[in-house]
């Protein structure tokens, strides 16, 4: 037994793994950007004073939060081509992760908006603002600082969830490790290195977000 890692081997394949890690970060960043846009729209739909929008928002969350991300990814990549909708694995990965991330981010944004004192909306409306102006100028800007911690969590979740897209032929970090591990019969080295790289990524992002949080705290 004994754990003797072939360090020289790890160093040799590291560039390959790093390439996978870059794809992982790209995916996570795109997913958080599109997910945030989707999340904002869904959050606004859910709290808007229009019942129809409320229902549409709830249906969105119900579907995309209720179906496992892995199933959504496989559906987008392997099932949609059957009805003529084809995506590259990268596109499918970004779409799937954004849609799913959007459902969670919508809840984050919604609770952020609901945490703002209702006197703020009243003051904005009493000046003659429309509901949309009040949201844009008064309510949403006040949520930014409160959104940073949960959005940081969500971003780290998304970073980890990118491992799921290895199942749709996307060669990100985990897939890269799988391929090499099988080819070289070095599962311990490859998966150990991959695990450490994930940890490095999530640690890095954790630090970035806590920095951002303290910076915004200073402004207020």
């Amino acid at each position: 037994m004994g754990l003797d890692l072939d360090l020289a081997y790890i160093i040799r394949v590291l560039p390959l793994l790093l390439k996978g890690a870059v794809t992982t970060v790209e995916l996570a960043v795109l997913a958080i950007i599109f997910g945030t846009l989707i999340g904002l729209v869904i959050a606004l739909a859910k709290i808007a004073p229009y019942p129809l929008l409320n229902i549409l928002g709830r249906i969105y969350t119900w579907v995309f939060r209720g179906i496992p991300l892995l199933v959504q990814l496989i559906f987008i990549y392997y099932a949609l081509p059957a009805v003529g909708i084809e995506f590259t694995s990268f596109q499918a990965a970004v779409i799937g992760m954004s849609l799913c991330g959007g459902a969670y981010i919508a809840e984050i944004i919604r609770s952020g908006i609901l945490s703002i004192d209702k006197g703020q909306m009243e003051a904005a409306l009493s000046l003659g603002m429309t509901y949309a102006q009040a949201m844009r100028r008064v309510i949403i800007p006040q949520t930014y600082r409160r959104l940073i911690p949960p959005m940081g969590n969500e971003f780290i979740s998304l970073t980890k969830d990118t491992a799921l897209v290895s199942s749709i032929a996307m060669t990100e970090l985990l897939r890269q490790a799988q391929l090499r591990a099988a080819a070289d019969f070095k599962p311990m080295e490859m998966y150990f290195a991959a695990a450490v790289l994930y940890l490095v990524l999530t640690t890095f992002f954790t630090l970035v977000f806590s920095k951002l949080e303290s910076k915004l705290a200073l402004i207020d």
């Binding site: 004192d117 703020q120 003051a123 409306l125 009493s126 003659g128 603002m129 006040q142 207020d220």
Partner: peptide, 20 residues
Amino acid sequence: ITRIRSKIGMVFQRFNLFPH
């Protein structure tokens, strides 16, 4: 309603200034 509200100023018990 927004046009009419813009002609009516309102002052609240809790001020409701915009903190940002």
